[in-house]
Amino acid sequence: MALVWLMLLSLTVSAQGEAFAPVRNAIRGGSSRELAQYFGSTVELSFDGDKQSYSATQAEFVMKDFFAKQAPASFDFVHYGGSNEGTPYAVGKYVSKSGAYRMFVKMKSAKGALVVDTIDFTKE
């Protein structure tokens, strides 16, 4: 029984990782245009606690500005999870030439697809 549970849990985590793969690739490439393809109609962006809600178009420009100032040297998700309601999230480490950030990305379901709802950067 425990083995079945473990296998189901690993499949869930693997599926969550797959959902985040295109988001990870866009962040690694510093591509706000590519990343914006996965935004919901509104996106909450937070930089060191300064939190704001943006339309998908505005969020793309905010991320473009961030990537221009903090170009990614490396990025990877280090943890995937889900809330009790089933909302998937991932925690990652974003490294630029001028510093490292802990990054939190939360998705939500919209029109039958998972879209990015929240991106939170916290300088380490």
Score class of each variant (00 low, 15 high):
residue 89 Y to I: 10
residue 90 A to E: 03
residue 120 D to C: 01
residue 8 L to W: 15
residue 80 Y to W: 00
residue 25 N to G: 10
residue 32 S to F: 13
residue 72 P to W: 00
residue 68 A to S: 12
residue 51 K to F: 09
residue 67 F to M: 02
residue 92 G to N: 02
residue 121 F to T: 06
residue 104 F to D: 06
residue 30 G to K: 03
residue 92 G to C: 11
residue 67 F to L: 00
residue 76 D to R: 13
residue 51 K to N: 12
residue 82 G to T: 01
residue 112 G to H: 07
residue 20 F to Y: 05
residue 100 A to I: 00
residue 27 I to H: 03
residue 55 S to W: 11
residue 3 L to C: 09
residue 26 A to L: 04
residue 23 V to A: 02
residue 121 F to R: 11
residue 119 I to K: 11
residue 56 A to V: 05
residue 15 A to K: 15
residue 123 K to R: 14
residue 41 S to L: 01
residue 55 S to K: 01
residue 22 P to E: 01
residue 103 M to A: 01
residue 52 Q to N: 06
residue 46 S to F: 03
residue 93 K to E: 12
residue 11 L to M: 09
residue 37 Q to T: 10
residue 28 R to H: 06
residue 122 T to K: 15
residue 109 S to V: 03
residue 50 D to Q: 14
residue 40 G to P: 04
residue 124 E to H: 13
residue 19 A to P: 10
residue 112 G to R: 04
residue 65 D to H: 06
residue 57 T to H: 08
residue 21 A to L: 10
residue 39 F to T: 08
residue 45 L to I: 02
residue 87 T to G: 11
residue 56 A to E: 00
residue 60 E to W: 04
residue 124 E to M: 10
residue 111 K to E: 07
residue 108 K to R: 11
residue 31 S to Y: 05
residue 113 A to Y: 07
residue 15 A to D: 11
residue 96 S to M: 09
residue 57 T to L: 10
residue 102 R to C: 03
residue 87 T to D: 13
residue 22 P to L: 01
residue 24 R to A: 15
residue 78 V to T: 13
residue 89 Y to W: 15
residue 35 L to S: 02
residue 122 T to D: 11
residue 13 V to D: 07
residue 37 Q to A: 08
residue 77 F to D: 03
residue 23 V to W: 00
residue 51 K to M: 10
residue 18 E to D: 12
residue 8 L to N: 09
residue 39 F to G: 00
residue 24 R to L: 12
residue 11 L to E: 04
residue 124 E to A: 15
residue 48 D to K: 06
residue 34 E to P: 02
residue 101 Y to R: 11
residue 54 Y to K: 03
residue 41 S to E: 15
residue 44 E to Y: 00
residue 80 Y to N: 09
residue 74 S to L: 14
residue 46 S to V: 04
residue 80 Y to S: 11
residue 118 T to E: 15
residue 118 T to S: 05
residue 83 S to Q: 04
residue 32 S to I: 00
residue 118 T to M: 03
residue 91 V to T: 07
residue 43 V to E: 02
residue 73 A to L: 13
residue 63 M to C: 05
residue 17 G to N: 12
residue 83 S to G: 02
residue 105 V to R: 05
residue 116 V to C: 01
residue 117 D to R: 03
residue 84 N to W: 02
residue 114 L to D: 01
residue 84 N to Q: 05
residue 17 G to C: 02
residue 89 Y to G: 08
residue 7 M to I: 09
residue 20 F to N: 15
residue 95 V to E: 14
residue 116 V to Y: 00
residue 69 K to F: 01
residue 79 H to V: 06
residue 89 Y to L: 14
residue 18 E to T: 14
residue 81 G to E: 02
residue 33 R to G: 08
residue 62 V to F: 05
residue 57 T to A: 14
residue 26 A to C: 04
residue 96 S to H: 10
residue 112 G to N: 03
